[in-house]
Amino acid sequence: MTARVGAPVAAEPGFFKKLWDRWPIKVAVIVIVILWLIPTVGLLVSSFRIKAITEAEGWWTVFSKPFQMSQWTFDHYSSVLDARGFGNAFLNSLAVTIPATVIPITIAAFASYAFSWMEFKGRQILFVIVVGLLVVPLQMALIPLLKLYTSGEFFGIGTPFPHPLNGTYMAVWLAHTGFGLPLAVYLLRNYIGSLPSSIIESARIDGATHFQIFVRLIVPLSVPALASFAIFQFLWVWNDFLVALVFLGGTPDVKVLTQALAELRGQFGQFEHVLPAAAFITMALPLAVFFSLQRYFVRGLTAGSVKG
């Protein structure tokens, strides 16, 4: 990891100015943080409170009696964790999510490099079409794609597309790759395209091929952008319910976590009280991923490597 260039508003401006600068910032940050936390706190409180109390009074009443032990319970968490096939569903979610995050990033990074630094016919128009595809609602894609997966048919015409593909991990990876690619290409091209052209030029002068430039320069320099997209794609796939249900199915051996948890709710929502606990359990891993990727969002990574 390159050197951290230190806190931005560092020493210079003098003590009083610093104080003046800092306090409003802190207040503003705290206000936004509290606003953003309020709904989640309601969820957190309810995930630990017994059903009767959650239904009978507002979650904020907890602050007036935090030590009334009879209101607290771990039952919701244990009933979620004990749900039939929970462990298997967790592993299935991982088996779906990790490749469905890595594959589109890799493909998009190569494509973004080409869109930014290589010359070929139709480059601009292709890029615009790629970004424009962002708007295609994935719900409209499910039926034609399922048909393709089951019969290998495009527009009702048979093709050598390997089938049947549905019910396999590959089917979901490819679908998520397709649905995630436009945003990935868009975000990464914006970042890779804004890298200083001098780096690439000097590398070319030193005799590096495009492939070498991509691997040795572009990828390390693009870590913050790759990490941001990785987080979003990870989240979307992790929280996805529909794509997995359509292309993988809902039988116990392939069921993903979101499906297992949605079923807990019951047909009419009889067991809805476990949903807050379920929500926190699903959130845990994505948040851990976010936290662990935080260190890649550091200032000066670009500058440092370029100068170095």
Binding site: L43, N239, F241
Partner: peptide, 18 residues
């Protein structure tokens, strides 16, 4: 940042309960 980011991690079912 994690706190602002947190809602993105809430699945949609969770968000409707929130």
């Amino acid at each position: 940042k994690s706190i602002i980011f947190l809602p993105m991690a809430v699945s949609f079912v969770g968000a409707s309960v929130v």
